[in-house]
Design a protein around this nucleic acid. Structure first.
Lengths: 218, 218
DNA sequence: CGTGCGGATTTGTGATCACGCTTCGGACAT
DNA sequence: ATGTCCGAAGCGTGATCACAAATCCGCACG
Protein backbone atom coordinates (compact mmCIF):
# COMPACT_ATOMS: atom_id res chain seq x y z
CA UNK A 1 0.00 0.00 0.00
CA UNK A 2 2.43 2.63 1.17
CA UNK A 3 6.16 2.57 1.97
CA UNK A 4 7.64 4.37 -1.03
CA UNK A 5 10.77 2.25 -0.55
CA UNK A 6 13.35 4.83 -1.33
CA UNK A 7 12.51 6.56 -4.56
CA UNK A 8 15.59 8.13 -3.30
CA UNK A 9 18.65 9.71 -4.80
CA UNK A 10 18.66 7.82 -8.07
CA UNK A 11 15.96 8.94 -10.44
CA UNK A 12 15.75 5.57 -12.15
CA UNK A 13 12.22 4.52 -11.33
CA UNK A 14 11.62 3.96 -14.98
CA UNK A 15 10.49 0.36 -15.00
CA UNK A 16 7.64 -1.01 -12.93
CA UNK A 17 9.43 -4.18 -11.96
CA UNK A 18 12.26 -2.13 -10.53
CA UNK A 19 9.89 -0.21 -8.32
CA UNK A 20 8.32 -3.44 -7.10
CA UNK A 21 11.74 -4.98 -6.57
CA UNK A 22 13.10 -2.08 -4.55
CA UNK A 23 10.03 -1.84 -2.35
CA UNK A 24 9.95 -5.53 -1.56
CA UNK A 25 13.69 -5.59 -1.02
CA UNK A 26 13.67 -2.97 1.71
CA UNK A 27 10.63 -4.59 3.27
CA UNK A 28 12.49 -7.87 3.54
CA UNK A 29 15.79 -6.34 4.65
CA UNK A 30 14.18 -4.24 7.36
CA UNK A 31 12.23 -7.18 8.67
CA UNK A 32 8.78 -5.88 7.83
CA UNK A 33 7.86 -9.40 6.75
CA UNK A 34 7.95 -12.27 9.20
CA UNK A 35 9.73 -15.53 8.32
CA UNK A 36 7.58 -17.92 6.35
CA UNK A 37 5.22 -15.25 5.09
CA UNK A 38 3.92 -16.26 1.66
CA UNK A 39 3.85 -13.98 -1.38
CA UNK A 40 1.80 -14.44 -4.53
CA UNK A 41 2.37 -12.92 -7.94
CA UNK A 42 -1.22 -11.84 -8.33
CA UNK A 43 -1.28 -10.37 -4.85
CA UNK A 44 1.84 -8.32 -5.49
CA UNK A 45 0.55 -7.24 -8.87
CA UNK A 46 -2.70 -6.14 -7.29
CA UNK A 47 -0.93 -4.21 -4.56
CA UNK A 48 1.34 -2.34 -6.95
CA UNK A 49 -1.20 -1.96 -9.71
CA UNK A 50 0.78 -3.97 -12.26
CA UNK A 51 0.31 -7.25 -14.03
CA UNK A 52 1.95 -10.52 -13.13
CA UNK A 53 4.90 -10.00 -15.44
CA UNK A 54 6.80 -7.29 -13.53
CA UNK A 55 5.79 -8.90 -10.25
CA UNK A 56 7.34 -12.13 -11.40
CA UNK A 57 10.58 -10.44 -12.36
CA UNK A 58 10.88 -8.71 -9.02
CA UNK A 59 10.17 -11.94 -7.15
CA UNK A 60 12.61 -13.91 -9.27
CA UNK A 61 15.31 -11.38 -8.60
CA UNK A 62 14.74 -11.49 -4.85
CA UNK A 63 14.82 -15.28 -4.91
CA UNK A 64 18.15 -15.15 -6.72
CA UNK A 65 19.52 -12.94 -3.96
CA UNK A 66 18.28 -15.26 -1.24
CA UNK A 67 15.80 -12.71 0.06
CA UNK A 68 12.97 -15.11 -0.64
CA UNK A 69 12.76 -18.87 -0.98
CA UNK A 70 10.90 -20.73 -3.69
CA UNK A 71 9.50 -24.19 -3.10
CA UNK A 72 9.60 -26.81 -5.81
CA UNK A 73 6.10 -25.88 -6.89
CA UNK A 74 7.05 -22.24 -7.30
CA UNK A 75 5.50 -21.03 -4.09
CA UNK A 76 7.41 -18.08 -2.67
CA UNK A 77 7.84 -17.02 0.93
CA UNK A 78 10.32 -15.28 3.19
CA UNK A 79 13.00 -17.68 4.40
CA UNK A 80 12.76 -19.58 7.67
CA UNK A 81 16.39 -20.06 8.58
CA UNK A 82 17.70 -22.80 10.83
CA UNK A 83 20.28 -22.07 13.48
CA UNK A 84 23.16 -23.52 11.50
CA UNK A 85 22.30 -21.30 8.55
CA UNK A 86 22.03 -18.23 10.76
CA UNK A 87 25.43 -18.89 12.26
CA UNK A 88 26.92 -19.45 8.84
CA UNK A 89 25.63 -16.12 7.59
CA UNK A 90 26.88 -14.46 10.76
CA UNK A 91 30.31 -15.94 10.13
CA UNK A 92 30.41 -14.45 6.67
CA UNK A 93 29.37 -11.10 8.06
CA UNK A 94 32.17 -11.41 10.62
CA UNK A 95 34.64 -12.00 7.81
CA UNK A 96 33.54 -9.22 5.48
CA UNK A 97 32.33 -6.37 7.65
CA UNK A 98 35.57 -5.79 9.58
CA UNK A 99 37.32 -5.53 6.24
CA UNK A 100 34.82 -2.92 5.10
CA UNK A 101 35.28 -1.02 8.34
CA UNK A 102 39.04 -1.13 7.99
CA UNK A 103 38.83 0.24 4.47
CA UNK A 104 36.51 3.01 5.60
CA UNK A 105 38.61 4.03 8.58
CA UNK A 106 41.10 6.32 6.77
CA UNK A 107 38.20 8.19 5.19
CA UNK A 108 36.01 8.43 8.31
CA UNK A 109 35.94 12.15 9.08
CA UNK A 110 34.13 13.75 11.97
CA UNK A 111 31.05 14.55 9.91
CA UNK A 112 30.59 10.85 9.22
CA UNK A 113 31.03 9.94 12.87
CA UNK A 114 28.49 12.58 13.87
CA UNK A 115 26.00 11.10 11.46
CA UNK A 116 26.65 7.62 12.80
CA UNK A 117 26.09 8.86 16.35
CA UNK A 118 22.76 10.36 15.32
CA UNK A 119 21.71 7.08 13.73
CA UNK A 120 22.86 5.23 16.83
CA UNK A 121 20.74 7.37 19.10
CA UNK A 122 17.73 6.72 16.89
CA UNK A 123 18.63 3.07 17.22
CA UNK A 124 18.68 3.33 20.99
CA UNK A 125 15.29 5.03 20.86
CA UNK A 126 13.89 2.14 18.88
CA UNK A 127 15.18 -0.28 21.49
CA UNK A 128 13.48 1.61 24.31
CA UNK A 129 10.25 1.75 22.33
CA UNK A 130 10.53 -1.98 21.50
CA UNK A 131 10.15 -1.07 17.83
CA UNK A 132 11.76 -4.07 16.15
CA UNK A 133 11.49 -2.84 12.58
CA UNK A 134 13.03 0.53 13.34
CA UNK A 135 15.68 -1.21 15.39
CA UNK A 136 16.73 -3.38 12.48
CA UNK A 137 16.58 -0.51 10.01
CA UNK A 138 18.69 1.91 12.06
CA UNK A 139 21.13 -0.84 12.97
CA UNK A 140 21.77 -1.57 9.31
CA UNK A 141 21.91 2.15 8.50
CA UNK A 142 24.59 2.55 11.14
CA UNK A 143 26.76 -0.06 9.50
CA UNK A 144 26.04 0.98 5.94
CA UNK A 145 26.87 4.61 6.65
CA UNK A 146 30.34 3.49 7.65
CA UNK A 147 30.81 0.92 4.91
CA UNK A 148 29.88 3.34 2.15
CA UNK A 149 33.14 5.12 2.93
CA UNK A 150 35.08 1.96 2.10
CA UNK A 151 34.42 2.55 -1.58
CA UNK A 152 34.22 -1.18 -2.17
CA UNK A 153 30.92 -1.58 -3.97
CA UNK A 154 31.19 -5.31 -4.61
CA UNK A 155 31.95 -6.07 -0.98
CA UNK A 156 29.15 -3.81 0.22
CA UNK A 157 26.71 -5.44 -2.17
CA UNK A 158 27.67 -8.84 -0.84
CA UNK A 159 27.14 -7.74 2.74
CA UNK A 160 23.76 -6.26 1.85
CA UNK A 161 22.81 -9.60 0.37
CA UNK A 162 23.57 -11.14 3.75
CA UNK A 163 21.44 -8.55 5.52
CA UNK A 164 18.70 -9.33 3.07
CA UNK A 165 18.77 -13.02 3.85
CA UNK A 166 18.78 -12.32 7.58
CA UNK A 167 16.12 -9.60 7.49
CA UNK A 168 12.98 -11.52 8.47
CA UNK A 169 14.90 -13.65 10.94
CA UNK A 170 16.50 -10.65 12.65
CA UNK A 171 13.17 -8.99 13.14
CA UNK A 172 11.60 -12.13 14.53
CA UNK A 173 14.50 -12.74 16.89
CA UNK A 174 14.77 -9.16 18.13
CA UNK A 175 11.03 -9.11 18.56
CA UNK A 176 11.01 -12.34 20.52
CA UNK A 177 13.38 -11.29 23.26
CA UNK A 178 12.32 -7.80 24.27
CA UNK A 179 15.75 -6.45 24.97
CA UNK A 180 15.80 -3.09 26.63
CA UNK A 181 19.52 -2.45 26.40
CA UNK A 182 20.96 -0.50 23.48
CA UNK A 183 23.29 -2.27 21.05
CA UNK A 184 26.40 -2.83 23.13
CA UNK A 185 29.27 -2.51 20.67
CA UNK A 186 28.23 0.49 18.62
CA UNK A 187 29.95 2.80 21.09
CA UNK A 188 33.12 0.73 20.76
CA UNK A 189 32.93 1.12 17.01
CA UNK A 190 32.56 4.87 17.34
CA UNK A 191 35.41 5.08 19.84
CA UNK A 192 37.73 3.10 17.59
CA UNK A 193 36.83 5.34 14.67
CA UNK A 194 37.65 8.48 16.64
CA UNK A 195 40.94 7.00 17.82
CA UNK A 196 41.90 5.71 14.40
CA UNK A 197 42.38 2.32 16.04
CA UNK A 198 42.20 -0.18 13.20
CA UNK A 199 42.58 -3.45 15.16
CA UNK A 200 40.09 -2.17 17.72
CA UNK A 201 37.63 -1.30 15.00
CA UNK A 202 37.89 -4.74 13.44
CA UNK A 203 37.31 -6.39 16.79
CA UNK A 204 34.39 -4.12 17.67
CA UNK A 205 32.65 -4.78 14.38
CA UNK A 206 33.26 -8.51 14.55
CA UNK A 207 31.85 -8.84 18.04
CA UNK A 208 28.93 -6.56 17.24
CA UNK A 209 28.01 -8.78 14.32
CA UNK A 210 28.52 -12.16 15.94
CA UNK A 211 27.32 -11.34 19.43
CA UNK A 212 24.24 -9.63 18.07
CA UNK A 213 23.18 -12.85 16.41
CA UNK A 214 24.87 -15.49 18.51
CA UNK A 215 23.06 -15.05 21.79
CA UNK A 216 19.81 -15.06 19.90
CA UNK A 217 20.16 -18.55 18.55
CA UNK A 218 20.85 -20.00 21.97
CA UNK B 1 22.74 -25.87 -29.02
CA UNK B 2 25.02 -28.08 -27.00
CA UNK B 3 26.55 -27.91 -23.52
CA UNK B 4 24.00 -29.74 -21.38
CA UNK B 5 25.12 -27.60 -18.45
CA UNK B 6 24.91 -30.13 -15.70
CA UNK B 7 21.57 -31.85 -15.83
CA UNK B 8 23.40 -33.32 -13.01
CA UNK B 9 22.55 -34.87 -9.70
CA UNK B 10 19.31 -33.01 -9.10
CA UNK B 11 16.50 -34.19 -11.32
CA UNK B 12 14.71 -30.84 -11.19
CA UNK B 13 14.77 -29.80 -14.82
CA UNK B 14 11.06 -29.28 -14.63
CA UNK B 15 10.75 -25.66 -15.67
CA UNK B 16 12.12 -24.25 -18.87
CA UNK B 17 13.49 -21.11 -17.31
CA UNK B 18 15.51 -23.20 -14.90
CA UNK B 19 17.10 -25.12 -17.73
CA UNK B 20 17.97 -21.89 -19.50
CA UNK B 21 19.26 -20.39 -16.29
CA UNK B 22 21.51 -23.32 -15.45
CA UNK B 23 22.95 -23.57 -18.93
CA UNK B 24 23.74 -19.88 -19.16
CA UNK B 25 25.11 -19.87 -15.64
CA UNK B 26 27.72 -22.51 -16.30
CA UNK B 27 28.58 -20.88 -19.60
CA UNK B 28 29.32 -17.64 -17.83
CA UNK B 29 31.12 -19.22 -14.90
CA UNK B 30 33.37 -21.34 -17.10
CA UNK B 31 34.25 -18.37 -19.26
CA UNK B 32 32.62 -19.63 -22.43
CA UNK B 33 31.41 -16.08 -23.03
CA UNK B 34 33.86 -13.24 -23.48
CA UNK B 35 33.48 -9.99 -21.52
CA UNK B 36 31.11 -7.55 -23.15
CA UNK B 37 29.31 -10.18 -25.19
CA UNK B 38 25.68 -9.10 -25.68
CA UNK B 39 22.68 -11.34 -25.07
CA UNK B 40 19.15 -10.82 -26.32
CA UNK B 41 15.94 -12.31 -25.02
CA UNK B 42 14.74 -13.31 -28.44
CA UNK B 43 18.09 -14.84 -29.31
CA UNK B 44 18.13 -16.94 -26.15
CA UNK B 45 14.53 -17.94 -26.64
CA UNK B 46 15.31 -19.01 -30.18
CA UNK B 47 18.36 -21.02 -29.10
CA UNK B 48 16.51 -22.89 -26.36
CA UNK B 49 13.24 -23.20 -28.22
CA UNK B 50 11.24 -21.21 -25.70
CA UNK B 51 9.47 -17.89 -25.71
CA UNK B 52 10.78 -14.67 -24.29
CA UNK B 53 9.17 -15.19 -20.89
CA UNK B 54 11.44 -17.94 -19.50
CA UNK B 55 14.42 -16.36 -21.22
CA UNK B 56 13.68 -13.13 -19.42
CA UNK B 57 13.44 -14.84 -16.05
CA UNK B 58 16.75 -16.60 -16.53
CA UNK B 59 18.44 -13.40 -17.62
CA UNK B 60 16.97 -11.41 -14.75
CA UNK B 61 18.21 -13.98 -12.29
CA UNK B 62 21.72 -13.92 -13.70
CA UNK B 63 21.73 -10.13 -13.59
CA UNK B 64 20.72 -10.27 -9.93
CA UNK B 65 23.69 -12.54 -9.23
CA UNK B 66 26.10 -10.26 -11.03
CA UNK B 67 26.75 -12.78 -13.78
CA UNK B 68 25.46 -10.32 -16.36
CA UNK B 69 25.15 -6.56 -16.45
CA UNK B 70 22.12 -4.64 -17.66
CA UNK B 71 22.47 -1.18 -19.13
CA UNK B 72 19.91 1.51 -18.41
CA UNK B 73 18.07 0.66 -21.58
CA UNK B 74 17.77 -2.98 -20.58
CA UNK B 75 20.51 -4.24 -22.82
CA UNK B 76 22.26 -7.24 -21.29
CA UNK B 77 25.87 -8.37 -21.69
CA UNK B 78 28.59 -10.17 -19.80
CA UNK B 79 30.41 -7.83 -17.42
CA UNK B 80 33.57 -5.97 -18.38
CA UNK B 81 35.29 -5.56 -15.05
CA UNK B 82 37.81 -2.86 -14.24
CA UNK B 83 40.97 -3.68 -12.34
CA UNK B 84 39.73 -2.25 -9.07
CA UNK B 85 36.62 -4.43 -9.27
CA UNK B 86 38.67 -7.51 -10.07
CA UNK B 87 40.93 -6.91 -7.10
CA UNK B 88 37.94 -6.34 -4.86
CA UNK B 89 36.38 -9.64 -5.87
CA UNK B 90 39.73 -11.35 -5.39
CA UNK B 91 39.93 -9.91 -1.89
CA UNK B 92 36.54 -11.36 -1.02
CA UNK B 93 37.62 -14.72 -2.40
CA UNK B 94 40.75 -14.48 -0.25
CA UNK B 95 38.60 -13.89 2.80
CA UNK B 96 36.03 -16.64 2.22
CA UNK B 97 37.84 -19.49 0.52
CA UNK B 98 40.44 -20.14 3.22
CA UNK B 99 37.58 -20.38 5.69
CA UNK B 100 35.87 -22.94 3.49
CA UNK B 101 39.09 -24.90 3.16
CA UNK B 102 39.62 -24.83 6.89
CA UNK B 103 36.13 -26.16 7.50
CA UNK B 104 36.65 -28.90 4.93
CA UNK B 105 40.02 -29.98 6.30
CA UNK B 106 38.80 -32.29 9.11
CA UNK B 107 36.57 -34.09 6.63
CA UNK B 108 39.09 -34.35 3.78
CA UNK B 109 39.76 -38.07 3.49
CA UNK B 110 42.15 -39.67 1.04
CA UNK B 111 39.41 -40.41 -1.50
CA UNK B 112 38.69 -36.70 -1.73
CA UNK B 113 42.36 -35.85 -2.12
CA UNK B 114 42.71 -38.45 -4.86
CA UNK B 115 39.81 -36.91 -6.73
CA UNK B 116 41.33 -33.45 -6.36
CA UNK B 117 44.63 -34.72 -7.73
CA UNK B 118 42.85 -36.16 -10.74
CA UNK B 119 41.12 -32.85 -11.38
CA UNK B 120 44.42 -31.06 -10.95
CA UNK B 121 46.12 -33.19 -13.56
CA UNK B 122 43.28 -32.46 -15.96
CA UNK B 123 43.85 -28.85 -15.12
CA UNK B 124 47.54 -29.15 -15.96
CA UNK B 125 46.62 -30.80 -19.24
CA UNK B 126 44.42 -27.87 -20.10
CA UNK B 127 47.29 -25.50 -19.43
CA UNK B 128 49.60 -27.40 -21.75
CA UNK B 129 46.93 -27.44 -24.45
CA UNK B 130 46.26 -23.71 -23.90
CA UNK B 131 42.58 -24.58 -23.45
CA UNK B 132 41.39 -21.59 -21.48
CA UNK B 133 37.82 -22.77 -20.93
CA UNK B 134 38.86 -26.17 -19.65
CA UNK B 135 41.48 -24.51 -17.52
CA UNK B 136 38.91 -22.30 -15.80
CA UNK B 137 36.45 -25.14 -15.41
CA UNK B 138 38.87 -27.62 -13.86
CA UNK B 139 40.36 -24.92 -11.67
CA UNK B 140 36.96 -24.16 -10.19
CA UNK B 141 36.16 -27.86 -9.91
CA UNK B 142 39.33 -28.34 -7.92
CA UNK B 143 38.26 -25.74 -5.40
CA UNK B 144 34.62 -26.72 -5.31
CA UNK B 145 35.44 -30.37 -4.69
CA UNK B 146 37.23 -29.32 -1.54
CA UNK B 147 34.71 -26.72 -0.41
CA UNK B 148 31.79 -29.09 -0.73
CA UNK B 149 33.24 -30.92 2.25
CA UNK B 150 32.93 -27.79 4.37
CA UNK B 151 29.17 -28.33 4.56
CA UNK B 152 28.62 -24.60 4.54
CA UNK B 153 26.11 -24.12 1.75
CA UNK B 154 25.61 -20.38 2.19
CA UNK B 155 29.33 -19.67 2.11
CA UNK B 156 29.83 -21.90 -0.92
CA UNK B 157 26.96 -20.20 -2.71
CA UNK B 158 28.53 -16.84 -2.05
CA UNK B 159 31.88 -17.98 -3.40
CA UNK B 160 30.23 -19.39 -6.50
CA UNK B 161 28.60 -16.02 -7.05
CA UNK B 162 32.09 -14.54 -7.06
CA UNK B 163 33.28 -17.12 -9.58
CA UNK B 164 30.28 -16.27 -11.68
CA UNK B 165 31.13 -12.58 -11.73
CA UNK B 166 34.75 -13.34 -12.57
CA UNK B 167 34.00 -16.00 -15.19
CA UNK B 168 34.27 -14.06 -18.44
CA UNK B 169 37.15 -11.98 -17.10
CA UNK B 170 39.15 -15.01 -15.96
CA UNK B 171 38.82 -16.64 -19.33
CA UNK B 172 39.86 -13.48 -21.13
CA UNK B 173 42.84 -12.97 -18.85
CA UNK B 174 44.04 -16.57 -18.92
CA UNK B 175 43.61 -16.56 -22.64
CA UNK B 176 45.57 -13.36 -23.08
CA UNK B 177 48.77 -14.50 -21.43
CA UNK B 178 49.45 -17.96 -22.75
CA UNK B 179 50.88 -19.40 -19.58
CA UNK B 180 52.45 -22.78 -19.97
CA UNK B 181 53.08 -23.45 -16.30
CA UNK B 182 50.54 -25.38 -14.24
CA UNK B 183 48.74 -23.60 -11.41
CA UNK B 184 51.46 -23.11 -8.86
CA UNK B 185 49.73 -23.45 -5.51
CA UNK B 186 47.47 -26.42 -6.09
CA UNK B 187 50.23 -28.76 -4.99
CA UNK B 188 50.67 -26.74 -1.82
CA UNK B 189 46.97 -27.09 -1.14
CA UNK B 190 47.15 -30.83 -1.62
CA UNK B 191 50.24 -31.12 0.58
CA UNK B 192 48.60 -29.14 3.37
CA UNK B 193 45.53 -31.34 3.13
CA UNK B 194 47.59 -34.51 3.46
CA UNK B 195 49.51 -33.09 6.40
CA UNK B 196 46.41 -31.78 8.13
CA UNK B 197 48.16 -28.41 8.25
CA UNK B 198 45.39 -25.89 8.78
CA UNK B 199 47.42 -22.64 8.71
CA UNK B 200 49.34 -23.92 5.71
CA UNK B 201 46.11 -24.72 3.92
CA UNK B 202 44.70 -21.26 4.56
CA UNK B 203 47.86 -19.65 3.25
CA UNK B 204 48.01 -21.88 0.20
CA UNK B 205 44.42 -21.16 -0.75
CA UNK B 206 44.78 -17.44 -0.15
CA UNK B 207 47.87 -17.14 -2.30
CA UNK B 208 46.38 -19.37 -5.00
CA UNK B 209 43.36 -17.09 -5.19
CA UNK B 210 45.10 -13.74 -5.02
CA UNK B 211 48.21 -14.56 -6.99
CA UNK B 212 46.14 -16.21 -9.69
CA UNK B 213 44.33 -12.96 -10.32
CA UNK B 214 46.81 -10.37 -9.14
CA UNK B 215 49.59 -10.84 -11.66
CA UNK B 216 46.98 -10.77 -14.38
CA UNK B 217 45.85 -7.25 -13.71
CA UNK B 218 49.38 -5.86 -13.83
C1' DC C 1 -14.48 -36.30 17.58
C1' DG C 2 -10.78 -37.22 14.50
C1' DT C 3 -9.38 -38.49 9.60
C1' DG C 4 -9.22 -38.93 4.76
C1' DC C 5 -10.99 -37.45 0.49
C1' DG C 6 -12.81 -34.88 -3.60
C1' DG C 7 -14.04 -30.83 -5.98
C1' DA C 8 -13.57 -25.79 -6.40
C1' DT C 9 -10.38 -22.21 -6.16
C1' DT C 10 -6.01 -20.24 -6.47
C1' DT C 11 -1.43 -20.46 -7.98
C1' DG C 12 2.80 -20.45 -11.14
C1' DT C 13 4.18 -21.16 -15.98
C1' DG C 14 4.77 -20.02 -20.55
C1' DA C 15 3.10 -18.05 -25.13
C1' DT C 16 1.70 -14.20 -27.64
C1' DC C 17 0.97 -9.53 -28.70
C1' DA C 18 1.22 -4.30 -28.79
C1' DC C 19 3.86 -0.42 -27.58
C1' DG C 20 7.79 2.73 -27.25
C1' DC C 21 12.55 3.14 -27.22
C1' DT C 22 17.22 2.27 -28.69
C1' DT C 23 20.38 1.19 -32.07
C1' DC C 24 22.42 0.63 -36.46
C1' DG C 25 23.01 1.46 -41.52
C1' DG C 26 22.81 4.12 -45.62
C1' DA C 27 22.03 8.33 -48.07
C1' DC C 28 22.69 13.01 -48.34
C1' DA C 29 25.09 17.36 -47.74
C1' DT C 30 29.28 19.48 -46.66
C1' DA D 1 36.28 11.58 -47.76
C1' DT D 2 33.83 12.83 -43.62
C1' DG D 3 30.17 14.00 -40.70
C1' DT D 4 25.10 14.20 -39.93
C1' DC D 5 20.54 12.82 -40.09
C1' DC D 6 16.68 9.96 -40.82
C1' DG D 7 14.41 5.68 -41.44
C1' DA D 8 13.89 0.74 -40.55
C1' DA D 9 14.82 -3.07 -37.88
C1' DG D 10 15.39 -5.05 -33.45
C1' DC D 11 15.04 -4.64 -28.66
C1' DG D 12 12.96 -4.80 -23.72
C1' DT D 13 8.68 -4.00 -21.23
C1' DG D 14 4.33 -5.13 -19.68
C1' DA D 15 -0.56 -7.00 -20.35
C1' DT D 16 -3.42 -10.79 -21.20
C1' DC D 17 -4.69 -15.47 -21.79
C1' DA D 18 -4.76 -20.69 -21.58
C1' DC D 19 -3.27 -24.50 -19.06
C1' DA D 20 -1.77 -27.70 -15.53
C1' DA D 21 -0.54 -28.34 -10.93
C1' DA D 22 -0.99 -27.42 -6.23
C1' DT D 23 -3.60 -25.93 -2.40
C1' DC D 24 -7.48 -25.27 0.51
C1' DC D 25 -11.99 -26.17 2.45
C1' DG D 26 -15.89 -28.78 3.66
C1' DC D 27 -18.14 -33.09 3.73
C1' DA D 28 -18.56 -37.77 4.53
C1' DC D 29 -16.77 -41.79 6.68
C1' DG D 30 -14.61 -44.35 10.34
Amino acid sequence: MEVPARPGPDASSLSAHDRVYRTLRTRVMHGELLPGQPLTLRGIGREFGVSMTPAREAIQRLVAEGALTMSGSGRVQTPELGNERIEELATIRALLEPELGSRALPRAHSALIDRMEAINSANTDAVLRSDAVTYVRTNLEFHRTLYLRAQSPAMLAMVETLWLQLGPTMRALYGRLRRNTPPPHHRMILAALKAGDEPGLRLAIRTDVTQGLRHLTQ
